[in-house]
Design a protein around this nucleic acid. Sequence first.
RNA 1: UGGGAAGUCGCCAAGCGGUUAAGGCACUGGUUUUUGAUAUCAGCACUCGAAGGUUCGAAUCCUUCCUUCCCAGCCA
Length: 563
Amino acid sequence: MEIKEERPLNFIERIIEDDLKAGRVPGNKIVTRFPPEPNGYLHIGHIKAICINFGLAEKYGGTCHLRLDDTNPAKEEQEYIDSIKDCIHWLGFDWGEKTYYASDYYDQLFDIAVRLIKEGKAYVDSLSPEEMKEYRGTLTEPGKNSPDRDRSIEENLDLFMRMKNGEFPEGAYTLRAKIDMASPNINMRDPALYRIKYAEHPRTGKKWCIYPMYDYTHPISDAIEGITHSICTLEFEDHRPAYDWATSIDGIEHTPHQYEFARLNINYLLMSKRKLLYLVNNNYVTGWDDPRMPTIAGIRRRGYSPESMKDFVQRVGVAKVESVVDYSLMEFCVREDLNKRAKRLMAVLDPLRIIIDNYPEGQVEYFDAENNPEDPASGTHKVAFTRELFIEKEDFMEVPVKGYHRLYPGNEIRLKHAYYITAQSIEKDENGNIICVHCTYDPESKGGTTADGRKVKGTSHWVSASHSITAEVRQYDKLFKAENPGAATGNYLDDLNPDSLIVIPEARIEEEAKTAKPGDYLQFIRNGYYMADSRDSSPEHLVFNRTVTLKDSWSKMKQKMGI
RNA sequence: UGGGAAGUCGCCAAGCGGUUAAGGCACUGGUUUUUGAUAUCAGCACUCGAAGGUUCGAAUCCUUCCUUCCCAGCCA
């Protein structure tokens, strides 16, 4: 029996259900769209918009279009289109056979513009951008009419055709809607509909030298596609009158409606395309898919699962309040999902040599290690045990602090899946550094339990010194150490975390790690979740990225005790 | 100072005139544990930006005020 999760409807779902109930939706099939401009890589913020639009279509049995809003060829590239598609698929959404492009409507958009001119609702303006700025007025003062506002229809038509035919240089003319230069809403002060731009478009090439503006293109594209609910972010709220203006142009039959929600902000993260670009260009990170980047390509390479991101967005909710979500919620979602699916391996990142004095030299035993205790069906794999082993330096203390129940002289701990061992003596070099710890094991504790049922408080992971492999492990952490990068000094670079990447060139990992491929979710027991790096990992040189740490109440306790 | 929006626990977020003001994250404490993980139990807003008012009854309705965000691209 499926347990349906009870979740209150968000305000958009409520609107949709009302519309459905009232019969306001043609054929009772809602149509949404995800309309990115292909001018960069998708980031975590986009995941929210993707999940809302595709999710709503799924939930109400409608469809969601992928539409590339490609009306500014100066900024757009095919590479971005490909990357956007790839990211949406990674998230597990599909838009069907047809990919929509605003550029597919250029002809229709042009015809509608001609009609507007003929109806006296649009005019060709010769004001320069600087003059236009002046004529537009300010937030508190109304604008004034352009001298070209009353140009004759014939002249407008002629000029517009010549704009299209490439007779004028960029900036010479624009086509503007004749609305109201005194409107309190600046977006309604005769907004530009078309501008001249001699740029090669990724799809239409050099066919056009005039390109339609967002406020004109977007609503009409929605109308053409039969979009019922056009969902965008809050900053477009005061574009809604422009949206409604465009969809009520004579001859446009379908009337979609725009609804706005708060974009996703997460503390410690930067979503600004400009700033991210700066980090890439100045080598603060290795690229757009650097595992520390908040791009979809980055978190994917880092080892985040699409399911966890969808769950995250679900938990954040959809509302109109500008909010900043805690990074810890995202990490929680990643851990929760990975806990259920990650294969457990033992990796020693900071090795300390252990010698089991009473274990026969040259002997190798293979123990069964469960792949995932959360999922018994996932089976087991073999792990080799020998006389010489490595454990984490952290798991041994010559003089234990209060509350420490790992290995220390005289203390007995369990080596996971293997035996109980007791530390006997320490070997040091001339500088007093510990070279190795001599231990004894209890042969009766094979598998990690004893017949007498005695308990040990500590269980450590370990790796055989001879039967383990080395691998590079990249310990990733937050890129910024401030919740709001740049808030303190005005420069976000000041808040860069110098420890956002710590490379461990030669960590020791059990041999089973050889089987791990990029895309396989791993947990290095007691260390965190990891994934083989999709760029740099190879069978000859394994590289693992830390996705996220495990929750660590011990380090919290240490901190509290001031250790 | 024009217009548009928003203010409910540290962070999200339900709530739509009658509830002891959901839930999640975070945090705190206990239990279990062959991961100091996971799991599990318990605690965590006499109060809803503020002040007035309407009402038998207000987070929900009204008034005023306060705070924050967005808008002056031939970007989206």
